[in-house]
Amino acid sequence: MEIVDILLSAAFWTAVLRIATPYVLGTLGELVCERAGVLNLGIEGIMTLGAMAGWMAVYQGGDLWTGVLVAAGCGALMGLLHAVLTVPLGLSQHVTGIGITLLGTSLSYYVYRLVLPQASTPPTIAPFQPLDLPGALAQTPLTYLALLLAGAVAYVLYRTPVGLAVRMVGENPAAAEAQGLSVTGVRIGAVMAGSALMALAGAFLTLSAFNAFFFNMVNGRGWICIALVVFASWRPGKALLGALLFAAFDAFQLRLQQIAGGVLPYQVFLMLPYLLSILALVLVARRASYPRALMIPYRKGER
């Protein structure tokens, strides 16, 4: 009965939306990259950089929205680096992505230490506050932005010429080329936009969920987003659903720990959302139709 109580409480759903926000943003970002045919394993590092850059901008005196913009800009720049290496140069997307993750993560820590060499406890900022709305609706503006962006990404992908171009270069770049599109241009643009979204996911952590930046705070969220893209079959609507589902598992296990913490070691509960995600992935994603050109570099005029 306690379980039902949990599911019915407004606090639970408030937590779900809050926990889901970085997953929604990160998954959308990865989805945009992959829809254009580029796997972006740099997501973990880009999220870390977004978290650091957004927080640092605010800490240095910028307002919160400036922080958001700075984070997005840094993400787009990392995306540009990834795109230049993987699209015109055609390097392995796996290796480059992992390199971007390592670079983004260590760069963030380096800059943080450079600016704050002495700090033993992370300094804090005044983060975004939840809007004054009832129940689960009382979220910070970034959560609403994430939900809006899910709709916006879906609209752009399915209803606008540029979205069609993105889908086409991810499915068959030769066909896009034959229709007069620049495969390189579209892919670079998509990876930059996607990476900006990933950085926003990171910025949410430091500007909304917490009020400080500390090491390892992204904590594998990026990798979850990559799995969520597969779970979502590369569809924005399902990505939103997947992120919410994962967040619900997470929020649920936190509460379950409090009820049944004495019986089982708490690590079992920590494991729960991941186990359930794998299960959901197995059930849902087996029939996923992935973008056909994903991870295949396109070289013009090659024979």
């Binding site: 209803r159 606008t160 010429p161 540029v162 979205g163 069609l164 171009a165 086409m168 066909a175 896009a176 229709q179 007069g180 599109l181």
Partner: peptide, 11 residues
């Protein structure tokens, strides 16, 4: 695909 101007808010 590619027959409309790329930067338009509808198709």
């Amino acid at each position: 695909v590619g027959t409309e101007p790329l930067w338009r808010f509808w198709s």
